[in-house]
Design a binder for these strands. Structure first.
Lengths: 353, 353
DNA sequence: ATGAAAGCGCTAACAG
DNA sequence: CTGTTAGCGCTTTCAT
């Protein structure tokens, strides 16, 4: 028998190690479980008020902090949420993230954000998060046919999507109304007298890319514009460079569009680059509309007309959805859709006839 | 005696619960500790290769994942690092963060990023991170006289600073050479013939604000410019609005500067706003230099001349420093300083005489 | 209202 | 090389 009891555990005020529930108990002359109860808001009512106060005081005095790892081990819930982001550096993402994190923090959760872009396989990242015992996942990365979704469902892990949706609509999501956003853009241009409007579409395996394109085509049709006057070119990635290339292809068409709607502000800046490369003026020769209203697009020249999406709200909605899912695993597959808003600036102008 | 053994633990393939080391052990007919050894890279050599392989296979077969909370509880190390950020939405921060996270991830750590701006007391945030058992902290928030620093030192928690330094220089840090950056800016303007150069300084309780200001004043003096021709106005926050106000004050001076150096790109954009408000042209009437080279300042009009700082490297250096600190708690209080670079664009022009 | 006991999943001495 | 044993800090029955 090897009893490795720490000598006089809990009595040494010399403690440099982190105090535990036992230290508090010893100091109050009560049993550790009583301390646990007194310090847990939910169980506090089971303990005499006077004792509870003494325990609270002692805990403060020695600077006791709950050990979440131990609690998590015991309860099976870590209070950790994983967030998979496509690229932290993308200027559109921080507001979403902060919406997510604020809401989650308020509920006592901490968030681990993982940037998928840089490191290898998304599966691996998810597995590492599972190893950390995350109680749920927010995916801002899902592409339309995606194995990660299946992977998470297999792991029986509560998951929500933000800013994206999955092809089958199986997962709860919070996203902007992409079709409505494109309609805003197209109708604005039509009202300005434009009859030939091009679209620089985003990657089609990402839901925003596919849905904005569909929204563009539908709105153009509804406005009575023939397909040959509403050409679409696809950018393979949401980057300025890809936007430039796609716009260049659009401008090389037989009948040049007098306006271009981009699926994204980054793409729109690429359109600016293409225009400059061809010696065309914006908005003089070609009007441009973006999407997302990312920071500082009001400072570029010309200030970009764009569709603002409710990024913070989106993040918050996703967090709420996830928490609901965690509380009731079988719950509703809700899709929250947020209304976009057109911000008119200097990059769109009436078409002189 | 109450033996609550799970019946036939590890034999049920029905398992919907997460498999544990015991399940793997049962499946292989070995003891759990052998599994632990076989699955730990560091201890694997203690186990027969054949057995180790069998264990590995079984683990994969049933989808076993290490439970980090349990491991952490046992070893006292969580593999979690906390990052305190002033504002995730600040466009300057993501590259730093991604430098930190990438390096840390590669070493098996996960990072919890906390945005200080939104929620209450920084102390509380730190305490919550301590409750999570973080192995160390990266502070991107420290102001020059700061109690958080003391709080962390008290908790004997390894800490490094990034992008900032503390007044006493007690903590290891990774930051850009602010003085050198300002010298680059001032000498550039002097070379262009400017003789009256103003400075929109950042908050003086933040090290970048204070050090860039000191750098500005030193460089101006070295260039032979009298103090009355190199006025300084302080912006209370690093925001476009505060930059505008400070610039307005600068422009209201008796002898108007022909160039303005801002402590930060956000501030520089505020200077643009002020110039526009006074009907002055940039760079025609007043040249402007920023600091940080944040995304898309090359797209504003005019494209901003600015001092680029090595943000990603800064993050990576901070991560390295922290890991070193964790490995050897008493280790060197190293200050890593990164060299900045001047990026000349359209907002600075020669002063016609 | 409190104490006792057991165990979450893992690792680290310590025997063999 | 492998099994035994104990325990990290906490919560939660179950008894008092």
């Amino acid at each position: 028998m090897k009893q490795t009891l720490r000598p006089a555990s809990g009595l040494r005020a010399t403690a440099s190690a982190r105090p535990t529930i036992k230290d508090v108990a010893a100091r109050c002359g009560v049993h550790p479980s009583t301390v646990s109860r007194a310090l847990s808001p939910a169980m506090k009512h089971l303990v005499a008020t006077e004792v509870a106060d003494r325990i609270q005081a002692a805990a403060n005095a020695i600077g006791y902090r709950l050990n979440m790892a131990a609690k998590g081990l015991r309860t099976g819930r870590s209070g950790l949420i994983g967030v998979l982001a496509p690229d932290i550096a993308d200027p559109g993402f921080p507001p979403v993230l902060s919406g997510i994190a604020d809401h989650l923090n308020a509920e006592g959760y901490a968030t681990i954000v993982v940037d998928v872009g840089s490191k290898g396989s998304e599966q691996d990242l998810v597995d590492r998060l599972i190893a950390r015992g995350v109680d749920g996942l927010v995916l801002a990365t899902v592409s339309l046919r995606d194995d990660v979704v299946k992977h998470c469902l297999d792991a029986a892990l509560p998951v929500v999507l933000v800013n994206r949706v999955d092809a089958a609509g199986q997962l709860p999501s919070a996203a902007s109304d992409d079709a409505a956003g494109m309609r805003l853009a197209v109708e604005h241009l039509v009202a300005l007298g434009h009859k030939r409007i091009g679209h620089v579409a985003g990657p089609q395996e990402i839901s925003t890319g596919a849905r904005r394109r569909a929204g563009f085509e539908a709105s153009a049709k509804d406005a009575g514009l023939p397909a040959r006057h509403t050409p679409v070119e696809i950018a393979e990635t949401y980057t300025r460079a890809a936007g430039r290339e796609a716009a260049l292809r659009l401008l090389a068409r037989r009948t040049r569009p007098t306006a271009i709607v981009a699926a994204n502000d980054l793409l729109a800046l690429g359109v600016y680059d293409a225009l400059a490369a061809r010696g065309l003026a914006c908005p003089g020769d070609v009007s441009v509309v973006g999407h997302n209203d990312m920071p500082f697009v009001d400072m570029v020249s010309p200030p970009l007309t764009t569709v603002r999406i409710a990024q913070r709200d989106m993040g918050e909605a996703a967090a709420r959805l996830l928490l609901a899912r965690i509380a009731a695993p079988g719950a509703s597959r809700e899709h929250i859709v947020l209304a976009p808003e057109l911000i008119i600036r200097g990059s769109t102008i009436a078409r002189e006839h």
